[in-house]
């Protein structure tokens, strides 16, 4: 009986040690290391016009880019990102926020997701609000991120994220937008190992008669993005 109890206790400690209940998710690019990523983009769309449907599925587009870590200074990683024979220098904070992008001054940078600065419990979600300015109008984007699991053996954390965007609409133009994705973050290495995200957009365009509104066109677009680390080596 005593032996059984000890065995059970040992099993409990072994299993508990492989599961972490909270983790600190932050980037930790190592100076002198080059990270190679493969980014894949797929797009499919359809338009329905008074019952007539046209679809378009584009072939996947593959891109490879590398990240060279130059240094860590003033609480930011200095990264040289090489893509298509061009190099962009970016300064990125450990939580993923961008601190600077000197070589991209004047170009519009997308909205970037950032991780919470504190310890993150499994099952806990965070909300991040960011603003986008287009044609002198501010649009507020809301990101929700959830830490699903962390594996103690592999150090891989699974993070789910969603985003909402209030697209301008009226009585004749109704729109929906959704973005969902998953990130596999390597906690030991402090880098994203894999990420997949999908955005779905639809626009319903109506014609208005005196009292009746008729659907004329429906546009739908799905964009699938995939990112995977292919290599990690010293340069």
């Amino acid at each position: 009986m005593k032996l059984l109890f000890r065995s059970l206790l040992l099993c409990f400690f072994i299993s508990a040690s492989s599961i972490i209940y909270c983790a600190e998710i932050k980037y930790s690019f190592k100076p002198g290391i080059t990270y190679t990523y493969k980014y894949t983009f797929e797009s499919s769309s359809s338009v329905t016009s008074l019952g007539n449907v046209k679809t378009n599925v584009q072939k996947p587009i593959y891109n490879t880019f590398t990240i060279k870590t130059i240094a860590f200074q003033d609480n930011a990683f200095v990264l040289d990102i090489e893509h298509n024979k061009s190099t962009y220098r970016r300064y990125i904070k450990p939580n993923g926020e961008i601190k600077g992008a000197v070589s991209e001054t004047g170009t519009e940078l997308p909205v970037f997701l950032s991780f919470p600065d504190t310890d993150w419990k499994i099952g806990e979600s965070h909300q991040i609000t960011k603003s986008v300015k287009i044609k002198n109008t501010d649009f507020t984007t809301v990101w929700n991120i959830l830490l699903r699991s962390v594996n103690n053996d592999t150090g891989l954390a699974e993070i789910a994220f969603t985003a909402t965007l209030p697209l301008p609409q009226d009585q004749l133009r109704r729109k929906t937008f959704s973005l969902n994705g998953t990130v596999i973050f390597n906690v030991f290495e402090g880098v994203v190992y894999r990420a997949d995200w999908v955005s779905k957009y639809s626009l319903d365009f109506y014609n208005k008669e005196i009292a009746v509104i008729r659907n004329m066109w429906k546009f739908e677009n799905e964009l699938r993005h995939s990112l995977i680390m292919e290599n990690l080596e010293e340069y």
Binding site: I81, E104, A163, L165, L167
Partner: peptide
């Protein structure tokens, strides 16, 4: 607007 949301990680080039 959708493009603004399309590359959510700061280490991905534009």
């Amino acid at each position: 607007l959708i493009w603004e949301m399309s590359l959510p990680f700061s280490f991905i080039p534009t």
